[in-house]
Computed example of a mutant assay.
Amino acid sequence: MNSNVSKEDDTMATSNTSNDAKATPAADAKINAESATIQMQLDAVQKDVAELTRALTEYGKAQGAHFSGAARAKAEQLRGEAEAGLSYADAQARQAYATAEDRVRENPAASVAIASGVGFLIGMLMARR
């Protein structure tokens, strides 16, 4: 039974080979035309991918520049706000110092008593530790 199957396979292989060998020039031309068409389509796809890559690169650079500029502007704004806050705190501290100095000059005895009391309390707290 195996020998019959083997003979049939050999017969089919021979007939397929003979069909391939009998390819006509018209079939070859058709295959060549289809190959050329496919190659043109592949070239077009490759060109489109290159253009898309270039466009995405330019977009990325533009976005980077935009965000970089926005970050610089925000940093400058925050710096200005910090400097204004520092100036305000400095003015408040100078005003508080001047007010305290005026009070000490107006009432030196009370100031010495208050300073002594604060020192005593700090000493007591430190001694407990």
Rank of each mutant, 00 (worst) to 15 (best):
K74A: 10
S87D: 13
Q63P: 03
A91T: 12
V45K: 11
I38G: 04
I114W: 02
D102Q: 15
R54L: 15
N107C: 01
V112M: 05
A113V: 02
E76W: 01
E58T: 12
D28Q: 15
K74R: 14
K61L: 13
A109T: 06
T14V: 06
A70W: 04
A13Y: 00
R54T: 15
G64L: 11
Q46P: 03
Y97I: 10
L125Y: 05
P108F: 00
R94F: 02
E34A: 14
A89F: 05
S35L: 12
K47N: 07
G123D: 02
R129H: 07
A33I: 02
Q41I: 02
A96E: 09
A113D: 07
A50H: 04
Q63F: 09
G85Y: 10
I122C: 11
A93S: 10
A93G: 03
G119V: 02
S87I: 08
Q39R: 11
A96C: 03
G80E: 09
K30N: 08
A127S: 10
A27F: 06
Q41M: 07
G85A: 15
A127R: 04
A65P: 03
G85S: 14
G119P: 01
A21T: 12
A71Q: 08
A89V: 06
A98C: 03
N2K: 06
V104E: 02
M12W: 07
S6V: 04
V45F: 05
M40E: 13
A91F: 03
V104H: 02
R103D: 07
S68G: 14
N16P: 00
S15N: 11
F120L: 15
T17R: 09
